[in-house]
Design a protein around this nucleic acid. Structure first.
Length: 741
DNA sequence: GTGCCTGCTCACGGG
DNA sequence: GAGCAGGCAC
């Protein structure tokens, strides 16, 4: 009996096919991680491949960690020399050794989204860009896509030709690049791009890695973008032992450049590629799977496949609709509490999934009130929090003074009386002399116009120099404590924001824990400040999920990819929220298909129980929205659903819409060609406030009148009313509070 | 230089 | 509803 006997025929085929390109189309829950780990074991134990020659790439550190753990379990010897890591950390490891060939220093810093924004702000100021016409966010996302597509600033400028706007953006791109380079910094996209540039310009380095990585495996292949594809192709070009695993139905990262063609055209790109489909699902009940299959079958752009399982039917899928998002959250929280109290499951068996991070707040409130342990994944990344970034900026400045953003961040935190004017003068001086911001601080007495701040700056420099000395003598955690002490950081936080201070201090404790964990994990080498900073730069929020703790997990559908739970709640299934308003109104029908794949991902996370919920009314950015139930809900066959105690009848159009909703919809049917999410108008109470052209209405001040026109404006509807005693008035529906009579 | 107020904009997803 | 730039008083 060998370990491979536990695999099914297709899985075994995938494991045994070790030479040449291989595409594994692995449906949700079809055991692809099992296949990958067994394949690694097979390569080493049966094919005699040196573990040193194996590279496995995943998307998150968490996935990498899991794979590493499972590989360690089945590979007896040499597992530690296999590279299992994310695209980004793989690239960082390569760049730390060789980026000097591209004119960077090997101890470059990595800029996160916040850092990018600060640089972009500077760039716009410098180029006198009107940030009303060109928003920083937009500019950054254009640059990001350009990098994903491997378009350099020069190429971007060429493509712009005579288009004024494009030319302007090209200028911004060039300046942004210049500044990153001057700061010896790379952004996330650069990590991939620079590695590819390195490979393309340095054949000997490429050859070294091609020889090293003779067997390459890539997980979640459907979410690779162009530059990642290029990276993998280059590495695999020599030995062609490339095994990619993916599911086109789970491609949900188009917005950050994922190119679904990478998987759809794999067989054209890599000649004689073997394709294996894994269609048996080991995760879910057949009811859940049938629902997933039914939904996804509405997509046109997909490879044909159908998941099946012999897990048995299981429970029906529960469907509940509520009046408000408040009721929805209350139901889900109460339901989980009931189940756990009855002893039928633990908290950690349950996950609540939603489309947007903003939806988490309502659930958080309810979980807190119900005293249920929970964890929200996503939202603000731990390392993006102000207090954490402040302290890390101290560490960065101490570690090497080259990161201008870090030094600038902390020079006046806590307040030292060094203001914006002094800071910009110092920055200008630093740029002129082509030295770093911190080096300029050291000779601040030579900078004209900063006389008043000189002593303050000097004492800041003395502080940093002192800690540089201490960094040589004490551990990182000790250093951290000394810094917090010296700058009286807790006191500073308490003065700043009263309510949040305690939460921030808790976060700092968490940071200290992470430092200690890093120090302990470095058994092979000395823990260094630089090493720690590098590690935290690439951490994603999802990486912090801990299976051993008992809490309910709340996260977006995007974060849930690759995870599974016995019981899943899919909340907020409303047109306008999920699928999102943007995709409904988009010209490109493919956008809805991407949303549908997201829905498919959500459904297939569930092993035993799936609960779908929606609310008629919810607050979105401060205003009440009325939404129809999601079109995806209607794609789930009615016979799979149960609604409360009553099993749904086939012919019922779910849910039964109340008179108000119908009225609102008929109004919209006239206002728009296509159905759109329904927004609030008239009074918020909702029962009988709808009116139409030709209706008699009552206004609180103007009395009674006749509605003569309703025009959709940007945010609201402009209603024209012929009042009996007050003449013709035009007013916005939300404010007018007109009552139909 | 700092702190407060106001008004404006933005609101999908993430390494 | 939140975060931020800009204006203003101290």
């Amino acid at each position: 009996m060998s370990i491979y006997d536990t695999l099914n025929a297709e899985q075994r085929e995938a494991v045994f096919h070790t030479e040449g390109p291989l595409l594994i189309l692995a449906g949700a829950g079809s055991g692809k991680t099992r296949v990958l780990t067994h394949r690694i074991a097979y390569l080493i134990e049966e094919k005699g491949v040196n573990p040193w020659h194996i590279l496995a790439i995943t998307f998150t550190n968490k996935a990498a960690g899991e794979m590493r753990e499972r590989v360690d379990k089945i590979v007896g010897f040499g597992a530690e020399s296999i590279w299992v890591s994310t695209f980004h950390s793989t690239c960082v490891r390569i760049l730390r050794r060789y980026i000097d060939h591209l004119g960077y220093d090997n101890n470059f810093t990595i800029y996160d989204t916040d850092d990018q924004k600060i640089v972009m702000k500077d760039v716009c100021k410098y180029l006198q860009i009107d940030t009303k016409l060109y928003k920083e966010r937009t500019l950054l996302s254009i640059i990001s896509s350009a990098k994903d597509e491997m378009v350099t600033p020069e190429e971007f400028a060429l493509r712009a030709e005579s288009d004024f706007r494009e030319k302007k953006i090209a200028e911004v791109y060039r300046e942004y690049e210049k500044r990153l380079r001057a700061n010896n910094a790379l952004d996330f996209d650069d990590l991939l791009l620079k590695t590819v540039q390195l490979f393309e310009t340095q054949p000997d380095i490429l050859d070294y890695y091609q020889e090293r990585f003779r067997y390459i495996m890539v997980d979640e292949y459907q979410d690779t973008n162009t530059v990642q594809f290029r990276f993998v192709s280059l590495l695999a070009a020599k030995y062609r032992n490339l095994c990619v695993v993916g599911d086109d139905d789970q491609s949900i990262y188009k917005f950050r450049g994922a190119n679904i063609k990478n998987i759809l055209n794999f067989e054209q790109e890599f000649e004689h590629a073997k394709v294996i489909k894994l269609e048996q699902n080991y995760r879910s009940t057949s009811n859940i799977l049938d629902a997933a299959n039914a939904v996804i079958s509405n997509n046109t752009a997909r490879k044909d496949k159908k998941l099946w399982t012999d897990n048995g039917e299981g429970e029906k899928i529960r469907f509940r609709d509520f009046d408000t998002a408040y009721d929805e959250a209350e139901f889900i929280v109460g339901d989980i509490k009931e189940k756990v109290n009855a002893g039928s499951c633990t908290y950690s068996d349950n996950a609540v999934l939603y489309r947007t991070n903003a939806q988490s707040r309502m659930f958080e409130e309810k979980f807190v009130t119900a005293n249920i342990p929970y964890k929200v994944v996503g939202g603000v990344n731990f390392y993006a929090r102000k207090e954490i970034k402040d302290l890390l900026a101290y560490l960065k400045t101490i570690d090497n003074g080259k990161d201008d953003l870090a030094s600038r961040r902390i020079i006046n935190v806590p307040k030292r009386g060094i203001g914006a004017t002094s800071i910009s003068r110092i920055q200008e001086n630093a740029s002129e002399r082509e030295i770093s911001f911190y080096d300029a601080l050291r000779s601040v007495d030579l900078i004209p116009g900063v006389s008043r701040g000189v002593t303050k700056v000097e004492s800041f420099v003395a502080l940093i120099e002192h800690f540089k000395q201490r960094a040589e003598e004490v551990s990182i955690s000790q250093l951290m404590d000394e810094i917090i002490e010296a700058i009286d950081y807790y006191e500073y936080l308490r003065e700043e924001g009263d309510v949040e201070a305690e939460a921030r201090i808790e976060n700092i404790d968490e940071l200290k824990n992470k430092i200690v964990a890093y120090e302990e994990s470095c058994e092979d080498g000395m823990p260094t400040l630089g090493g720690f900073l590098e590690e935290v730069a690439l951490v994603a929020d999802i990486d912090s999920l801990d299976e051993n703790s008992d809490y309910v997990v709340l996260m977006t559908l995007h974060s849930a990819k690759g995870l599974e739970y016995p019981s899943v709640y899919l909340a907020g299934l409303e047109d306008g929220l999920f699928p999102s308003y943007m995709t409904i109104t988009a010209d490109d029908p493919m956008e809805i298909e991407e949303e549908r794949r997201l829905c498919y991902v959500g459904i297939t996370r569930a092993k035993k129980e799936l609960t779908l919920t929606c609310a008629k009314r919810r607050m979105v950015r401060g205003e009440t929205q009325y939404n129809k139930m999601s079109r995806f809900l209607k794609e789930v066959p009615v016979y799979l659903l149960s609604s409360g105690n009553v099993v749904m009848k086939e012919e019922t159009d779910i849910p039964k819409q109340n008179a108000y909703m119908q009225a609102v919809q008929s109004f919209h049917a006239k206002a728009f060609e296509t159905p759109k999410p329904i927004r609030q108008f008239g009074n918020a109470g909702g029962s009988s406030s709808s009116y139409d052209v030709g209706d008699r209405v009552r206004h609180v001040k103007f009395g009674e009148g006749l509605v003569t026109a309703i025009v959709a404006g940007g945010r609201d509807y402009e209603v024209t009313v012929q009042f009996d005693n007050a003449g013709v008035k035009k007013m916005f529906a939300a404010f007018a509070k007109l009552q139909k009579i």
